[in-house]
Write a protein that binds this DNA or RNA. Sequence first.
DNA 1: CGGAATCCTCTCTGATACTG
DNA 2: CAGTATCAGAGAGGATTCCG
Lengths: 138, 138
Amino acid sequence: MPSSSKARKPDISLSNCGYSKVLDIISNKWTALVIYAMENGKIRYGEVLRRVEGISKKMLTQTVRKLERDGLVQRHITPTVPPSVEYSLTPLGETLLQPMKELRQWGRVNYDQVVESRASYDSAYATDSRGADSMNEI
Amino acid sequence: MPSSSKARKPDISLSNCGYSKVLDIISNKWTALVIYAMENGKIRYGEVLRRVEGISKKMLTQTVRKLERDGLVQRHITPTVPPSVEYSLTPLGETLLQPMKELRQWGRVNYDQVVESRASYDSAYATDSRGADSMNEI
DNA sequence: CGGAATCCTCTCTGATACTG
DNA sequence: CAGTATCAGAGAGGATTCCG
């Protein structure tokens, strides 16, 4: 066996990392919010549009299509007039809900610390190129 | 409380969602991989560069700076010649490691199903010969 | 060794308007 | 109601070069 003290080859890569694969699925701006809108069962397109603040029809459609393609969401079409389309999580989609909730929980608990850290970092590395001591804004 | 049968106001928004906040931190392409490089303790800049396959110096610096600003990573400078810089997770960063691992685990277990789903979706909706999709694996 | 600065491309996202 | 189509802007990411 090589007992060389160095010689380490790359062992962390995008293609072998499960986390990166998940990011490929849920790192979009709206994906998580849309999934949350479905966590209590079937919900109509327009209802999601109303419940998820700020999302546009274009982005909702795009998000929901991708989730459907990935097998996380199902589409139920009722060909009435006007048409009614409902969405719900697939069993696979439900399994994703759990780890997502844990990450969400982390955010709820710790995000304030992150915000604080950013503030102190920014004041330490004072982007302020001239005011050497205090903040002489305006 | 209003017992009206409808009238639901948006209750899912980017600003109140802990998950979206976390995405703000770790949804970048390299962030997770860089964090994984540090999960066993202090590691030098160049060592991260070698271990994380495909990352450039620019992206590593950018990623690590953001993590430092967010309070998830610490920088240890040893002013030798040439300089030596080591990085490690902060206690806050370590707490993030856990939920990330669960998501990574989900990816390891379920990503194949997602890939399958994509394939069947694409063949079902086969828009002429437009397979100009994303090829991830090699 | 560990960056910073520059340039450039490509994807994501948003606004707007039209349709079955 | 549930989309589609089109255009435009912002920013993430990459390649290259230079520096203490």
